[in-house]
């Protein structure tokens, strides 16, 4: 009797916990959207921030920077992440050297992002003389994104049935061609899902960027697409504040009169971005998988 009662109470507690977590999430998302959605309009996403005195304006440069930085980071990490993942899944033999790589992956992926940012400050900002720049920011983001990508690729490849590899090798296809033409395509759904989720993380990252990409954005001329020009949005050597950094900056300085409004709008944009990444990761992964295994 007593044991049964305890069991009942425990079950209720577990339901409460689940309910609590769901409500926390609902409050978080609801609060952000409630605060932020009405701030977001066409001006907000297409205009640069207003002056410190007047406030107003939007976050267009920040929004652009967030995406541009994401693209740069992915350009750096995708090839290396693929290479590293393939190495770990296909070539690495058990032993000291492989353990060493595993340890590196583990340490790199658990480093605090502020420490990664400081490393970027030392190496990419100061030592190379690039200053606060998109490139420095992208490289710093790559440092903590890379181990994630390697893991994603390795896991996706390991999930491909061994029979696929065997079938290809038995046809006299070389190991490398087997990897490129048989294993990678079969692992693609997993890889895509993982990459998009990683993109979401990169998109929202701020701490690693404060001292690498900087906290300011120069006046940008969105008609100037010459990457070497200082006012060009594409110039990888210009400083750039992203949406996430912008939120932190206006909150911690609080000089702008409508700081909380802008922060709320930017947070809502960030959250929407992350949700889109999250949903598209699920959707695209499944879609690719279907495409691979069944009728077109």
């Amino acid at each position: 009797m007593n044991a049964k009662l305890t069991d009942r109470i425990a079950t209720i507690c577990f339901y409460l916990i689940a309910f609590l977590i769901l409500s926390v999430l609902a409050i978080l998302i609801g609060f952000i959207l409630y605060q932020g959605l009405h701030v977001i309009d066409w001006t907000f996403i297409t205009q640069p921030p207003g002056s410190i005195l007047t406030g107003g304006g939007g976050v267009a440069p920040q929004l652009f920077n967030s995406f541009y930085l994401l693209v740069l980071t992915m350009l750096i990490t995708i090839p290396i992440g693929l290479g590293g993942g393939i190495y770990m899944a296909e070539y690495a033999k058990p032993g000291k050297w492989t353990q060493m790589i595993r340890l590196s992956i583990e340490v790199l992926s658990s480093l605090p992002s502020i420490v990664v940012g400081l490393f970027g400050l030392l190496l990419f900002v100061q030592l190379t003389g690039w200053g606060f720049s998109l490139l420095s920011g992208a490289l710093a983001l790559s440092v903590f994104n890379l181990p994630l990508m390697v893991r994603v690729v390795e896991q996706a490849i390991s999930a491909v049935p061994k029979e696929q590899t065997e079938a290809s090798l038995a046809l006299g296809v070389t190991h490398w061609q087997t990897i490129m033409k048989v294993i990678l395509p079969a692992a693609l759904p997993g890889i895509i899902t993982g990459f998009i989720l990683a993109s979401g993380r990169v998109f929202g990252e701020a701490a690693a960027l404060l001292f690498t990409a900087g906290m300011t954005s120069p006046v940008l001329d969105f008609t100037n697409w010459d990457p070497s020009s200082p006012t060009s949005p594409l110039n990888p050597l210009r400083p750039a504040s992203t949406l996430a950094v912008h939120i932190w900056k206006i909150n911690s300085e609080s000089i702008v009169s409508d700081a909380s409004k802008i922060a709320a709008g930017s947070s809502a944009l960030l959250i929407i971005g992350v949700l889109i990444f999250n949903l598209s990761a699920r959707f695209l992964g499944q879609w690719f998988y279907k495409k691979l295994t069944s009728t077109r």
């Binding site: 029979e163 079938a167 038995a170 079969a186 295994t293």
Partner: peptide, 10 residues
Amino acid sequence: MVFQKPNPFM
């Protein structure tokens, strides 16, 4: 070579 379990490519 042909294997025990049919293993067509995906």
